[in-house]
Structure formats: structure tokens, C-alpha cells
Amino acid sequence: MVTLNVNGKQLQADVDADTPILWALRDTLGMTGTKFGCGMALCGACTVHLDGAPIRSCMTPVSAAEGRKITTIESMSASRVGKAVQAAWVKHDVPQCGYCQSGQIMSAAALLASNAKPTDRDIDAAMSGNVCRCGTYNQIRAAIKDAAATLSA
């Protein structure tokens, strides 16, 4: 049994310490917004925030999260940055199949939380760990810039 702080709530999960955060969230806690893509931190679909920093939850065991704060897509609308990013995603109609977009949004929100005015190069660096098989990269870039503009307004 481990105790996880997810989106501000203390939750008990009956999982082994080596269980990746991803599967504790999805299978044990029933929070399916965070997606499984590769299991090897190669695609970014499983991105969540651990104490505000983006991590790949498919490779990070729950033991690494004890006493720390996990933030997932389900609570993005609760933060100013997350809300702006989601609004920009809607405005630009970014998703196609949508499966990677939770991870994309988590990476983008982490970028904007630490860098209010990212350059194209900053966006490349922050987002190149997130694969989109539908090829929505140009719309993601536009949405990030739009969210940055909203946040600095």
C-alpha cells in the first residue's frame, strides 16, 4: 500500500513499490486521462507533473512519488497555466485522434510554467519527447504561443 498525492488529494493505492505511476493512476485509481504509449519513456503520452516538473509516468515507480505531488491532466483546468493551455488547444482544434494530447498538454504546461515566452527552439526542446502520430506538431506550436500570449496579457 502506498500513499500518493494526486491533484491535491491523498490517495491510497494497493500496489507494489515498483509499479509505475502510470498504472497506479490508470488501473488502481481509475484515472485514465494519462495514456500508455510505449512503456519506455520514448513517446511522452504518459507525461504527468511530479512537484511541477514533467516526468514519464510509465517509467517512474510509485516509490519515487511518495511525499511528492503528482499532477495529471484531470486537474489541468485548476491551474492558471493549465487552463490557458487547454483553452489554446481548443481554440486551435489541436487534437486529431487525441491520444497523445494529454501528454502534450502536460509538457506544454510545464514549459510555460517555467518559461513565459518560449522561442521556437525552446518549444522544440520541451516538446520533442512527445510523439504525435497524427502530426499535429504545427498546431501544438501555435497553441503554445497562443497560450503564452494569453498568460502574459
Binding site: 486521462g33 491532466i73 483546468s77 481548443v90 489541436v94 487534437p95 487525441g98 491520444y99 494529454s102 498538454i105
Partner: peptide
């Protein structure tokens, strides 16, 4: 016109096959 499936795909609520419980 805006896609009707966008909102559920930006807030994690959209249900894919893998999300079935």
C-alpha cells in the same frame, strides 16, 4: 466548423479502448 470531439480530448475525459474498466 470546430471539431465536436475536441473538448474531451484536451481534458482527459475522452474514452479510448484502453480506458475501459
Amino acid at each position: 466548423l470546430r471539431r465536436l470531439d475536441t473538448p474531451q480530448k484536451v481534458n482527459g475525459s475522452g474514452k479510448y479502448g484502453l480506458d475501459v474498466r
